[in-house]
Every structure is written in structure tokens, then in C-alpha cells.
Design a binder for these strands. Structure first.
Length: 436
RNA sequence: GGAGAGGUGGCUGAGUGGUUUAAGGCGCACGCCUGGAAAGCGUGAGUAGCUAAACACUACCGGGGGUUCGAAUCCCCCCCUCUCCGCCA
């Protein structure tokens, strides 16, 4: 969430930054400030009364010790009426805080000043391209045809088991998926300095709030309940990204300065309801309800967060370079950025069978927006103050679309798929044979 | 799921209704002492709110609610940890 002090001190600046976003509702600023004002007024009064009550209670104790019961009783009556007013004011404070915080939780992060103004994905500046689209001396197939021909994925039976949007990986397909997961984890751990963690795949609601998934995207999550006990519904959710548990690992802690930067890499499946997205580019593996992803998370000092973002993007790019896949990096404009992000780079890989770039990684600096929501702080070694660190997340990378680009790019004239050299130790094969 | 025990500051550990503004100890920071150190002595130190800032004040003893003039302490609900039992990959 945003810093309430920033809203108090520079409300016009906040309004202007919010207006630059798609869905940035700058009208909420005034509502937040009104609740904050109500809270402070009630708080000032209740604290004065509490000070009076505390001192009076001590006096009562002294009077009773001196056996002055009549005087003590008179004071008790006075304090009792103060107590009623305190209870009233405390309710007002609690109500104002609840309303203020509900509003704050629904306000997105402010875009970094350098982010390009724009409305849609059309306005995202392209930063760079790597490699070039492969040229085929034969008619290349798309991944759906390839997967069916090589029996990598059984789309029909996946849908039979769990409905459309769920994949059944089979044979070489399952092995390739597993090889990719291991390749990615080991790359980021061994070469890029991330610590590997394996998180729960079900997370509490507070974690979803912490990273900014909730309350806005509640309709996109799978809620789970315990058995038939519907009263447990709404407490636990299947994770839409490993960011949800991993970014929250240190929530409500005060990290020591030397602990930073913290860098984690985690594999997890990701579950997304994709409500309302049916029929939009849903053929094959491009948009599915469950996919695998290797996620990168960093918790860093505010001064170094943009350097850390740049290196995170390079870490994700390394994946595509090693696998010999053509890609481009774009910088999301104000209108296309995610809810919690101050700046986002997307990496899009070229899928020859689709004739388009597919997003396989999104690397964001959320600055202190998430840290504030999860009350994660660090002790600044210079000032000794407790401050909010910056939290970054990036896919390193999403697997389903990587799978698509890989098989489409490296398909051979004989129908086999050439396995890129760095992946061979993991798959224990040079090619996926045509007649598998 | 059942039974029992527990949750107090960075750690340890007192505290069953009123100078507790949470004792004592360990550890920490600073100072005195010393040639230097240790020991000793002294001082300080939690988190947040409020404030332009500071002082003061308020809140915080797992979380929430209640009783009371006053709650770490009494009552109720919940969460977590540990031990044993049951079930289980």
C-alpha cells in the first residue's frame, strides 16, 4: 500500500501518478484522507481521556490504601463515565482505520516517474531484441500439432480429467517439462546467486493481500476449503504464482541490514482461474489454468532496487539465450503495468508456430508497496531506522510458453526436436525423436 | 480428531488485580576506570501512533472480545508450539 504520509503531504502528486494508470482511481485519495482525519481527531481525544483515566486509577488505588472509601467511590464514578466515552471513541478510531486501510489496499502502486505514459500494450516501448526468428527450409508446425504428433501433451485427456485449460504431459513431454524445471532452478541457484526454496502451494489470504493479489484479483484465484467444511472457505487459496508465498517469507519481520539483499528462486505450479478470459488465445498451452513456473524474488535496499531489477531481467534473459530462443524485452507503460508494480519489464519469446512473441517473464520492482502491506522492514545500518525494503519479483521463467517456443523453434525437418545443448544433461537426450 | 502443557522484550526468566513507567540475569551500545583489555561501576537501548520536531502522552506481555475505577494477571473465543494417543502418504 501507499504511505499514508505521502497522501497527506502530496495528495496532488499521488492523484497525478494514479491517473496515469489504467484503473488508477485517483478519487479514492480524498476518501482516504477524510477517514484519516476522522481517525486522528478521535485518537487525540481518546488518548487524552486515557491519560486521565490512568492517573485517576492510580489515585483511586492510593485512596483505597488510605481507607478513604467515599472519595474513591466518587472518582470511580467519574472514571466510569470517561470509560464509556473512551469505548465510543475507540470504536470510531477502529472504524476509521478499517475504512482507511480498506481503501488504501485497493489503491495500486504509483508508477516510477521514468515509466512511459500509455494506455495499452501498444504503447509499451521495446528495449532490445536478442537473436532472430528461425528460418525453416520446410513448413514448420505449431506446438499443438507438434505436441500431438510427438505425444508430448494429451490435450483431450487433460480436458477429460479437469476441464479445458488443464494439461496432461506425457512421455517426452513430461520429461522435457521436468528437465526445464531443473535447468532453471540450477541456473539461477548456481550461477545467479539465488537461494532455492520450495514453498507451500496453498497460501493464506494474508499472503495474497501482502503481494497485492487481493483484494483486486480475488476472482482470479482458486479458493480451497477443507473437505466439506464450507466455513474454511476463503482462508486458503491455490497460489497464482510462487511470488505469493516466497515474497511473504519474511513478512512481519525486521531484517538486519547485512541480511540484504535476499534473493530466492522457487519452482511452483501456478493456478489461475482466468475468469472471463475463455476463448481468448486459449488454443493449446498459451493460456491455461495450471502451469509451471520458476520464480525469482529479491528483497533489497531501496537504493539498489533498480540495479537489482536490471540484473533480474538479465538473469531471465540468460534462460532464453542458453536455449537459443529469439526474444525481446519491453518496458510496460503506465497503463499496462500490474497493480503492485512501480516498473515492469516483460520478456517475450518468439514462437514461430504462432508467428508472435509470447510473454514468458515479467520482472517488476514493487518498491516498498508490498513490504508495507506485509509489514516487512529492515534495520538501516547507517541510520539505525527501521525502513521498508524494496521487493522485486520476476519469472525466471514461465514454463508452458517456454515449452511452446522451444518445440516450435527447434523442430527439425524429420519431425524430431533438437534439444539445446545446455538442456541435454537434464533431459539425458540430444533430440526428442520423431516417432516417440 | 482426542488429552495435556505452554506462548512475557534480542535471549533467558520473574510476575494471579494497584509506584510494573514489565524485576533479575545474559547479550548489546556508550561512558568512567586501564598503558591496553577483562572485571567492576554508571548510563542508554523495543514496536508503533500522536507531533513540524522534541518532550509529554497513548497503545502493545500470541490474536480478539469481556469483567473492573484499574488487567501481563480474572472470564470467554480463536491461533500457534510442544508431548502423548488416534488416523494417515
Amino acid at each position: 500500500m501507499l504511505d499514508i504520509k505521502l497522501l497527506r503531504e502530496k495528495p496532488d502528486f499521488v492523484r497525478e501518478r494514479l491517473a496515469a494508470r489504467r484503473g488508477g482511481d485517483d478519487a479514492k485519495v480524498a476518501e482516504v484522507l477524510a477517514e484519516d482525519e476522522r481517525r486522528r481527531n478521535a485518537l487525540a481525544e481518546t488518548e487524552k481521556l486515557k491519560a486521565r483515566r490512568n492517573s485517576a486509577s492510580k489515585e483511586i488505588g492510593a485512596l483505597m490504601a488510605q481507607k478513604k472509601a467515599a472519595e474513591a467511590d466518587a472518582m470511580k464514578a467519574e472514571v466510569r463515565s470517561i470509560g464509556d466515552r473512551i469505548a465510543e471513541l475507540d470504536r470510531e478510531v477502529a472504524d476509521a482505520v478499517a475504512r482507511r486501510d480498506d481503501l488504501l489496499l485497493s489503491i495500486p502502486n504509483l508508477p516510477h516517474p521514468s515509466v512511459a505514459h500509455g494506455a495499452t500494450a501498444e504503447d509499451n516501448p521495446e528495449i532490445r531484441r536478442w537473436g532472430s526468428p528461425p528460418a525453416f527450409p520446410f513448413k514448420p508446425l505449431n506446438h499443438v500439432a507438434l505436441c500431438e504428433k510427438l505425444r508430448l501433451i494429451d490435450f483431450a485427456r487433460g480436458a477429460k480429467l479437469s476441464g479445458s485449460g488443464f494439461l496432461l504431459y506425457t512421455g517426452w513431454g513430461a520429461r522435457l517439462e521436468r528437465a526445464l524445471i531443473n535447468f532453471l532452478l540450477e541456473l539461477h541457484q548456481n550461477e545467479h546467486g539465488y537461494r532455492e526454496v520450495a514453498p507451500p502451494y496453498i497460501v493464506g489470504e494474508h499472503c495474497m493481500v501482502g503481494v497485492g493479489q487481493f483484494p483486486k484479483f480475488k476472482d482470479q484465484a482458486y479458493a480451497v476449503q477443507e473437505g466439506l467444511d464450507a466455513s474454511t472457505l476463503g482462508k486458503l487459496y491455490l497460489l497464482p504464482t510462487a511470488e505469493a508465498p516466497v515474497a511473504n517469507i519474511h513478512r512481519e519481520e525486521i531484517l538486519l541490514g547485512p541480511d540484504l539483499p535476499v534473493r530466492y528462486v522457487a519452482y511452483s505450479p501456478c493456478f489461475r482461474a482466468e475468469a472471463g478470459a475463455a476463448g481468448v488465445g486459449t488454443r493449446g498451452m498459451i493460456r491455461v489454468h495450471q502451469f509451471d513456473k520458476v520464480e525469482l524474488i529479491k528483497i533489497v535496499h531501496p537504493d539498489s532496487s533498480y540495479d537489482e531489477l536490471a540484473s533480474m531481467v538479465r538473469n531471465a534473459e540468460t534462460v532464453l539465450q542458453r536455449l537459443g530462443l529469439h526474444y525481446r524485452v519491453i518496458n510496460l507503460c503506465t497503463g499496462d503495468m500490474g497493480f503492485a508494480s512501480a516498473m515492469t519489464y516483460d520478456i517475450e519469446v518468439w514462437a514461430p508456430g504462432q508467428g508472435q512473441f509470447l510473454e514468458v517473464s515479467s520482472c517488476s520492482n514493487c518498491e516498498d508497496y508490498q513490504a508495507r502491506r506485509m509489514n516487512l522492514r529492515f534495520k538501516d545500518p547507517v541510520s539505525g531506522d527501521n525502513r521498508f525494503p524494496h521487493i522485486l519479483n520476476g519469472s525466471g521463467t514461465a514454463l508452458a510458453r517456454l515449452f511452446v517456443a522451444l518445440v516450435e523453434t527447434h523442430q527439425q525437418a524429420d519431425g524430431s526436436i533438437l534439444v539445446p545443448e545446455p538442456l541435454r544433461p537434464y533431459l539425458k537426450a540430444d533430440t526428442i525423436p520423431a516417432g516417440s
